[in-house]
């Protein structure tokens, strides 16, 4: 069974708060968390900047409950994009473990699903999704191994946000049938975090099946992480092809013996 992961914890400059969130996450049983850096992409300003080094946060990372291993902390970048032309891959991407995109318009959503080199596509939680999820881009994203993310912190804070989150999630499930979905917190406070099994149960409300809901906090998160890792590591592919066999051998294999016999008889 894959370990649990929460791929979105709001990054703040408040080091103490971040520490307490990560401690809570470890206590709840998450093996991996990612600190989110939200950047609104503007056409002129293209500065993203480096994330803070995660090893500065703790001398000793807290131990994950039930695993006796320290928690893994990663950096994640979320780009809020309102126009396709604003999204440009920059050198700063390599400082982050995961790249996510929050599309504001249908055009950007289409581009994010089909062509952009990202790992996660965020689904709106604080407003009604301004566009409809169409089948071709969603299936394109699933084919490419890009994941859709629903964050639940807003749903805990406010009942109107809860309605938006659930309705957006359900409308996504209508199209993607529960495939390639991850559920993460987006928590700003330790009390906004919930345990992984709670989230697996919450997934049922979002229209996921039991198995998909559990995968949304475990296996799918791992797959998204590995997808992010390949951006840094996989630089080329070597393909080997078997050479064609010598002529005399090929003749023997032309037809199976039983068929040959039949032909002779005719």
């Amino acid at each position: 069974m894959a370990a649990f992961a929460d791929l979105c914890i709001s990054g703040t400059n408040d080091k103490k708060r971040l520490q307490s969130i990560i401690e809570t996450a470890a206590h709840l049983g998450y093996s991996t968390v990612a600190i989110n850096h939200l950047v609104e992409v503007q056409p002129k300003k293209q500065e993203i900047g480096k994330p803070k080094c995660v090893s500065e946060l703790f001398d000793h990372f807290p131990i994950v409950q039930g695993r006796s291993r320290p928690i893994r902390v990663l950096n994640r970048l979320t780009l809020v994009v309102s126009d396709t032309s604003h999204f440009r891959q920059t050198a700063d991407f390599k400082f982050y473990d995961i790249i996510a995109i929050y599309p504001k318009t249908e055009k950007v959503f289409h581009a994010a699903c089909m062509s952009c080199d990202v790992d996660i596509i965020c689904i709106a939680a604080t407003e009604k999704q301004p566009f409809h999820f169409k089948r071709p881009p969603v299936f394109g994203a699933i084919e490419r191994g890009v994941f859709f993310e629903i964050s639940y912190a807003a749903a805990i804070k406010d009942s109107t946000m809860r309605r938006y989150t659930i309705s957006n999630a359900i409308s996504l499930m209508e199209t993607c049938k529960g495939k390639n979905v991850i559920v993460s917190s987006g928590a700003e406070k330790p009390l906004e975090l919930r345990g992984p099994y709670d989230i697996a149960n919450l997934g049922l409300l979002f229209g996921l099946s039991e198995g998909d809901a559990k995968a949304a906090v475990s296996a799918n998160c791992r797959a998204a992480l590995l997808h992010g890792e390949t951006r840094k590591t996989a630089l080329g592919i070597i393909r080997t092809v078997k050479k064609s066999q010598p002529a005399d051998e090929r003749e023997d294999k032309e037809a199976p013996p039983s068929k040959k016999a039949k032909l002779d008889a005719m």
Binding site: I156, K157, L191, D198, L202, L204, L205
Partner: peptide, 8 residues
């Protein structure tokens, strides 16, 4: 369970 989860 889900009501307990969503209690904030």
């Amino acid at each position: 369970w889900s009501a307990l989860t969503l209690l904030g």
